[in-house]
Design a protein around this nucleic acid. Sequence first.
RNA 1: CGGGGAGUGGCGCAGCCUGGUAGCGCAUCUGUUUUGGGAACAGAGGGUCGCAGGUUCGAAUCCUGUCUCCCCGACCA
Length: 440
Amino acid sequence: MKMSRFLVPTLKEAPSDAVAVSHQLALRAGLIRQEAAGIFSWLPLGIRVLKKIEQIVREEMDRAGAVEVLLPTVQRADLWRKSGRYEDYGAEMLRIKDRHERDFLFGPTAEEVMTELVGAHVNSYAQLPLILYNIQWKFRDEVRPRFGVLRSREFLMKDAYSFDVDEASARHSYNRMFMAYLNIFARLGLSVLPVRADPGPIGGDLSHEFMLLAKTGESMVYADDRALGLPAPGTPPEDPQALQALVDERLSVYAASDELHDVAEYESRVEESHRMEARGVEVGHIFFFGDKYSQSMDVKLDGPDGAQIAMQSGSYGVGVSRLVAAIIEASHDDKGIVWPAAVAPFDIGIINLAPDKDDVTLLADTLYNALQAAGKQCLLDDRKIRAGGKFADMDLIGLPKQVVIGPRSVASGQLELKDRASGETHNLSLDDVVAALTQD
RNA sequence: CGGGGAGUGGCGCAGCCUGGUAGCGCAUCUGUUUUGGGAACAGAGGGUCGCAGGUUCGAAUCCUGUCUCCCCGACCA
């Protein structure tokens, strides 16, 4: 992509409304634009990041055996009346009427729709277990949205729902999702800790939040710092006991958010030198809710002995749009965003310092074409603006690798290759730059 | 929902107290000189001062109402 034909409205100063660093940088880097409180347009750079996160989540869901569907944003009110949540949800639910004065709502989540969908198409226990997921925009009319897309009213969420015949099987589904989440966050390049969470009315131990450690996080996390270095599980074992053992191992390291933090247990189990207290942003939440919606929605299947059974279910959420902000919170410096390679809007930024000089432009275009041909996504800054602005913008939008090409490059045959995160630069020939950027 | 603050060109702000027909910096456009880390000079375009009433010869400014946005707290992916 050539910047002269793209849209990246960068700002030198942050709008005064933005307080959180991620909000300021998202606005300054031209990722998003606020349309109303907690409602945003996604600009070209922002949508590319969002899509990359979405795709990683999708791939890991698929790998874990979950199946994608797409549920509507607008849902029937009577579904929610059936579960009892139409009244319970209160003012957070955005209620709307169609032209026939029928009651609808903009979905804040999808337990009702998904449970009824499964009930309509699954008739027998033999068709379970089943995990369905949905990456769709949700709306929660929060009293106080804040920090840009970190906590917006309209947000993109991946929500998955597991359906099993009994609790043992449901636990296995839960464990599969737990592992999938570890894989997702590892692939995103993030330090995310699973912490015990309030299991709600169902009780038990099947509820975890996934916290991204970031200075500006909303909640406190107390953990054994050795929980951070653990590797992603990759493709986990199918055998329930083997999988359970892996989950237990992962959870044997102490990690809790403030509401479930047990000081006595923490101090007895974690040596002082390994105690870590940090702020975290909740980027995922998984929990088991048993037959709650199967019962309330009256969705039953034929069991092994012919009797009708209720399904045992869990919900598994990932805040996809929130992650865009959370990642910026966790990865930036005083110059701007430092994107992890997996989610960067482009892999490489190429700066053409002299777009009006044919020889410089030829060199820049040659590099651009070579990298694009090798499957790399490049953003070529060919705008007719001064050098300083290009350097500043490139650092602000935070592409992982930068190549600077100017008259000097033509004269010396050396291009400057820069790593955004470390700031290190190397002068290399065209061929060496291509080689360095395409070796994987 | 309780408490506080703010709405003036795309962004950041001044002007308001003490009414007299809108200004500064950045950005944008033109020209000249510059030219490898957010250039200088000269010129230009762009705003019914959130909206609606009211007071007044005259309202960005005073009064009333209303809408919107932000911050702190309680709540959430």
